[in-house]
Design a protein around this nucleic acid. Sequence first.
DNA 1: GCACAATGTCGAATTTTTAGACAAAATGAA
DNA 2: TTCATTTTGTCTAAAAATTCGACATTGTGC
Lengths: 193, 193
Amino acid sequence: MKDRLLIIDDNSAVRATLRLLLSDEFEEVDAIENPAMIATLASPGNYDAVLLDMNFDNGRLDCTDGLFWLERLKSLPTPPAIVVITAFGDVEIAVKAMKLGAEDFVTKPWDNDQLIEKLKKAITKNRKQRQDKEAARRASQLEAAESERLRLTLDEVKMRHIHSVIDSCDGNLSAAAQQLGVNRQTLYNLLKK
Amino acid sequence: MKDRLLIIDDNSAVRATLRLLLSDEFEEVDAIENPAMIATLASPGNYDAVLLDMNFDNGRLDCTDGLFWLERLKSLPTPPAIVVITAFGDVEIAVKAMKLGAEDFVTKPWDNDQLIEKLKKAITKNRKQRQDKEAARRASQLEAAESERLRLTLDEVKMRHIHSVIDSCDGNLSAAAQQLGVNRQTLYNLLKK
DNA sequence: GCACAATGTCGAATTTTTAGACAAAATGAA
DNA sequence: TTCATTTTGTCTAAAAATTCGACATTGTGC
């Protein structure tokens, strides 16, 4: 209910229908007719979900364009959940789309309730994936910091910990000294250097 | 070339053909006719890839069993890469399989070279996914340790760092003392407690 | 076996830490 | 606002830890 959705479909009647169906389910629903128009939107990388039609009116039905834009959307810094929708889908296209990171794949004509549920689940799944990715990024940082700590001098480690604890005590030196298990004057001395 | 593959197909001719095709590409290729036989294998959770046929000879063609076993394989502690293969696949089945974590989906009849390449890529992708997942797991551990460090006394932090450095010096106390920036005797004193 | 590094131990000089005390400043509740 | 409590800044003297130099002993690698 607080999520933002972008509909991409070259059929204006479909856009209107989808917008009507989904405007109650999302905080904001934008609709454009072509992925190339994404650049003209206010914040292209900020949608929680994209409902992406594969078959643009370019005379080709092989979804090349659709897969191209899917990959492009998924390479954004924070990629949205993408549910692909198509009238001409076959197994190969569906598998390609899923391998490119689409969260789901629906065929026209669609079932309204199923479409809504798939969009919701896609957003949930996408959010979890991004959290995992972010966690993996942090893990490498933390491990690098961990191995770098070995190069530190005993005094350096002491001072780091002291400042960490002081921060966690909101600058209260008496409390920090007690938590550190040292005399208050000792803490003062250490801070003077 | 050092990977282990498991073929699951209820057609013995297909099993033989696949085994012949793939035995050059993998260090070990096992083949069974039914996923229920996985339990009888030596190390069911140890395959790098599984080539899983969806249509078992049970009178049903809706792939219910195949999807069930796919999900089950993917819930193993270290899930293998899974390439689904089927003669009766439609878009819905393919999408369901991909959402359940299959790395790829091929239809019979298959192309030999493409099948080999898909299996290789599936293994690579699966390995990366597992590494990311493992990294995410470690990240939460490391963060928990980081926040717990705040509760430690200055002496405790000192001793932890000392032992870490000693370990990294393979127990050489002179080198450890130098790296810690303290006198060797000081290190001896600290270790006595 | 030989050279070299690491260990274990000592004493004495130096530095740091600690406990207790006191006044000033800051904080928080009535 | 006042009053009680806590925190800060500073001091002294005793206690503890650290450092440096030295020496004999034990490992280690060539």
